[in-house]
Design a protein around this nucleic acid. Structure first.
Lengths: 157, 157
DNA sequence: GTCATTATGTTATAATATTGCATTTGGCAA
DNA sequence: TTGCCAAATGCAATATTATAACATAATGAC
């Protein structure tokens, strides 16, 4: 993903979420809008407490954890956000309204996450698991590595 | 994996670990042996605090978290144990001394984890990530689903 | 407007993990 | 053997992540 594409995604994401909320009759309250904008402006996924801190600054008073966790839960349940379990952070879902499978490519160096949707991958995993008698759920993989620019930087260094 | 295979793995694991420790000159201290045996006897992966509780019972006094976390770190560093990030638990590495790639199949129902080693999967993932310019690290995937027996039970129910 | 539902506020606490420093143990060279 | 260094363990405090439980406020259906 190019830097400009990242920036576009970042800028458009709150608007896309808003559009889906309107279509589906989901309440986009002031609190949710503020959290949306915090997530929308971040280059990399954010931890809950980073969001709490930023929100507290915006609101001018200390916001308690449940407030933010509930908001994040709302976004995750409605397919706007991924929780990245391996890092305890929350990333914008770049495919608002699409199926939730594929993979998140997580950069070890810059912390950014990139989302790919790949039916072939899904199929391959299902078949691989099935050989062990395992029935896979649909899920987003979390894959660790280096993003294009960090890999280039590492090679250059 | 059959129940008997699981049981065999479980019984042999501490001995395999011990053998590798001897070969590599790693200290298998009394503390490490006790943690090894706790992990060896568990059907499913255990959380750090579950291990702390069991160890405290065995020792007859309260064991502090760092003691156990350090022991787990020792086993993980030496390839005897996997930390399952999506669940905050620790699972025996069933392929002691092998490459650490492939996948952990995690059953949502019984909590057990099964390890598969699959070079084709590794290749597939690398190629998929490479199309996004991403350089994947070798890693164990965590895949959620239902194990053979829990899937059968679910179908029967 | 009343009422039920949904959302938010607030306090407390649970669950997971680490830092920093003191003490003990094990290996090994003089 | 002794002394030393490095590795391992003990221990207290605290950091980080997340949830429970209950009160209050806002919203939408009727």
């Amino acid at each position: 993903m190019s830097a400009t594409a990242a920036k576009r995604g970042q800028k458009n994401w709150p608007k896309q979420v808003e559009a889906v909320c309107v279509r589906q009759g989901l309440q986009l309250t002031p609190l949710r809008r503020r959290v949306l904008s915090i997530l929308g402006e971040s280059a990399a996924p954010l931890g809950a407490y980073a969001i709490i801190d930023r929100l507290s600054k915006i609101e001018g008073k200390q916001i308690a954890p449940p407030t933010v966790y509930r908001t994040l839960e709302f976004f995750a349940e409605n397919g706007f956000l991924h929780k990245i379990e391996s890092r305890n952070v929350f990333a914008r879902c770049e495919h608002v309204g699409h199926a939730h499978y594929g993979a998140l490519l997580l950069c070890e160096t810059c912390g950014r996450s990139e989302e790919i949707e790949d039916e072939a991958l899904d199929e391959f995993l299902k078949r691989t698991a099935a050989r062990a008698g395992f029935a896979l759920q649909p899920q987003m993989l979390e894959l660790q590595g280096l993003c294009k620019s960090c890999a280039a930087a590492a090679r250059g260094a």
